[in-house]
Design a protein around this nucleic acid. Structure first.
Lengths: 339, 339
DNA sequence: GTGAAAGCGCTAACAA
DNA sequence: TTGTTAGCGCTTTCAC
C-alpha cells in the first residue's frame, strides 16, 4: 500500500537536477528548449505518474479552459444534440464544458449564469429561457468582455455572436406548404412573443398568408406556452370554432402531437379534415401515425459551430472582430400529417 | 469606459482597513467573526463588484467542486435525463458538472476519463461504453481514492458505488408477460454480453422460460449492437426461421421500432402475428402505432441519486463507508404491441 | 537553452 | 475576534 503523494514539476525538477521552469517549458512543448531535455522530462513525467495541476495552471494564466452552457432543459432532444456538438468540438480544443439548465425560469437562469461567472468560464453559450425579459444577469459577461454566444434563442438587447436557424423562413415554408396542398383556413399555435424564434415563425406564417391574399383571422392565432397540455387546449379551441381551420401550423412537435391525439379522440382525420405541421423534428415525429410533418433544425451542427465560434473568439480575444449572426437553413420535412 | 480591474479580497481588505484573512472569513460565513464585520465586508464586496476566484480557492483547498460525467452519448434520452438529474442535485450543493461522451468507444472513454482526471474532478459518474473490456483508465481514480460511481452500465472489476436498474427482473417480467399473453415461441434480441445490463436482461429472459419449462431455442437468441440497422437484420433473421417467434423481447426500444417497421413492410400484424416488447421507454414508444410495450427506467432519478451519493462520498471522503450497489426497480408498461 | 524569482488569489495554521 | 505568514502548483518575465 504505497501512498502516492501528488507529483509536481518541482519533484521532477529535483529528480532531474534541472529547474522547475525548465520542466514547465518541456512539458508545454515550449520552443526554446532542447529536444533532449524535453524528451527527458516527458519520459520522467510519465514514469513518475505526474499529472499537471490544471487548477494551478489556470490560476496563473487566468484562463479556465472552460466554457459554460445554459439551456432550458438538457433532456430536450434539440438541446441535448446541441450540447453533444458543443462537447465534441470543445474537447478537441482542450476545453471543458460545464452544463446547466434554467428550466425555462428566469431566476434559475440568472443563478446558473452567476455561478458560471464566478467559476470564471472563458465564455458562455446560452439559449435563453421563455421568461427572460431582461439582461442584467448577462451584462456580467459583456461588461467584463467575456464572450457570450446565443444559440437559437437570444436576448436582443445584448450585442454578441448568435447562431440561429431561419425561423421566419421556416414558418413561411410551412404555411406555403399548407396553402399549396389546398388548405384554406390556416391556424397557428404560437409560442411566447418574447422569444425571437416564436415571433419569427409567426411572422413567416403571416407573410405567407399575405402573399396569397388570405386575411389573417384573429381566432386562428393561438399564443401559448407550447406544452403538451396548453397545446391540447389551444387546438381544442381552434377546432371548436364555428369555422374550424383545415390546416394548423403548430409551434413545436409537442403541440402537434397533442393535436394529433385530439384528432384521434374526436374522430377527425389527419390530414383530410385537418392537416398538421410541427416544428423541430423530434425523434417521435417520424414514427407517430400519421407521421408528422415538421421542420428539422440542425441541433448538433449548431452546437458544433457555436463551440467553434466561441473558442475562436476566446483565443483571439479581439474585441475588434465584429459580432456575427449566423442563420442556418432548416429543412421542411413533409410527412403524412399534411400530405 | 471605466476599466474594471478584478477585485480581490486584498482590495477589500485595504479599503476596509482589515486583513485579507478576515475578509476571507467574512465572505465564507466563518463562525469566528463578528456579525458586524461580516456584514460590513459582504456589503462592500457587493458594492465593489467583487467575485470570488473559485480557481484560487480550489487550488488552495485542493478541491475542484466539480464532478465529471462520462456517458456513451449525451443525446440519448435516458442519458440526458440522468444528466439532468445529476445537474439539478449537484448545483444545489455548489458542485459543477463537466460532461463528456465516449460515443461508445473505449479509446474515447479513456480519453475523457484522463481529461477529467487531470482537471482534478472530485469524483466521476460514469456509464461505460459498449467496448469497455478493461479498467486501466478507471484505475487512475480508484488508485488515488477519488470516488467513482457507475450508473446503469458498470465495470465489474472496479469496486465502487453503483446505481443500477433491475435488468434481470425486467427481462424476467417482460418474458413472463409474453408467456402469459399466450406466446409460445419467444425470441430475444440481446445486446453485447460485455455489459451487465444486457447480460442480466438476457438471464431474466432465460429464467422466465425455464420456469414454465420452455426450452430455450438457440436460433431465438440474437446478439447484436442494438442499433436500428442491426435490429432490423436480427429481426428479419428471426422472422425468416422455419418456425418464427410469436413474441420478441427486443433489447431496447430502437430495435423494437425496427421490428415494428419490418412488420409493417411485411404485412405482419402486431401483436397478433408477433408481439413486441422493447426496453427504456423512449419518448417515441408511447406514440408509435401500435404503441410499444417497454420497461421504464427512472433516468432522472438515477442521476439525481447518483449525484447525491457521490457528493456524499466526496464530502465524507471516508474510505470506511462500504461501497453500495443500489438497484432501482423498473416498471413494465404494457401497450398495444403486446396486448 | 536554462535558471531564479515573483506572484496568480485564496485558505488555514498559528499567534495575538 | 482578528492578523500574520506561508504556501497551493504553476507560468512567466528577466536575467545569464
Amino acid at each position: 500500500m504505497k501512498k502516492h503523494p501528488e507529483i509536481t514539476i518541482h519533484h521532477l525538477a529535483e529528480v532531474l537536477k534541472i529547474s522547475a521552469s525548465t520542466v514547465s517549458r518541456a512539458l508545454s512543448d515550449n520552443k526554446r528548449i532542447s529536444e533532449k531535455t524535453r524528451k527527458k522530462v516527458q519520459e520522467k513525467a510519465l514514469e513518475m505518474g505526474y499529472r499537471p495541476n490544471v487548477l494551478a495552471a489556470n490560476l496563473r494564466s487566468k484562463r479556465s479552459m472552460t466554457i459554460g452552457v445554459v439551456v432550458p432543459r438538457i433532456d430536450r432532444h434539440f438541446f441535448s444534440s446541441a450540447i453533444s456538438g458543443i462537447e465534441d468540438y470543445a474537447w478537441t480544443k482542450g476545453f471543458n464544458v460545464i452544463i446547466s439548465q434554467s428550466n425555462d425560469l428566469l431566476f434559475k437562469e440568472a443563478n446558473c449564469v452567476r455561478t458560471l461567472f464566478n467559476n470564471r468560464v472563458d465564455g458562455i453559450i446560452i439559449s435563453i429561457s421563455m421568461q427572460t425579459n431582461e439582461d442584467k444577469h448577462l451584462k456580467l459577461f459583456s461588461d467584463k468582455n467575456i464572450p457570450i454566444l446565443f444559440f437559437d434563442r437570444y436576448c436582443p438587447t445584448i450585442e454578441s455572436d448568435r447562431i440561429l436557424v431561419d425561423d421566419y423562413n421556416s414558418g413561411y415554408k410551412i404555411t406555403r406548404h399548407l396553402i399549396e396542398r389546398g388548405c384554406k383556413r390556416i391556424a397557428h399555435i404560437a409560442g411566447p412573443e418574447l422569444l425571437n424564434i416564436y415571433k419569427n415563425r409567426k411572422e413567416g406564417y403571416l407573410k405567407a398568408l399575405e402573399e396569397v391574399e388570405i386575411l389573417p383571422v384573429k381566432e386562428y392565432l393561438e399564443v401559448t406556452g407550447l406544452t403538451k397540455e396548453e397545446g391540447k387546449l389551444a387546438f381544442s379551441r381552434l377546432m371548436s370554432l364555428p369555422n374550424p381551420p383545415d390546416g394548423v401550423f403548430c409551434g413545436n412537435d409537442t403541440t402537434a402531437l397533442s393535436a394529433l391525439e385530439y384528432c384521434q379522440d374526436h374522430k377527425l382525420r389527419v390530414p383530410q379534415d385537418v392537416a398538421l405541421v410541427g416544428f423541430s423534428d423530434e425523434p417521435f415525429s417520424a414514427v407517430v401515425t400519421p407521421s408528422l410533418s415538421t421542420v428539422k433544425q440542425p441541433g448538433y451542427e449548431m452546437g458544433y459551430l457555436a463551440a467553434q465560434k466561441i473558442i475562436d473568439r476566446i483565443q483571439n480575444n479581439s474585441v475588434t472582430i465584429p459580432f456575427e449572426q449566423i442563420v442556418l437553413p432548416t429543412e421542411l420535412i413533409i410527412r403524412n400529417s399534411s400530405k
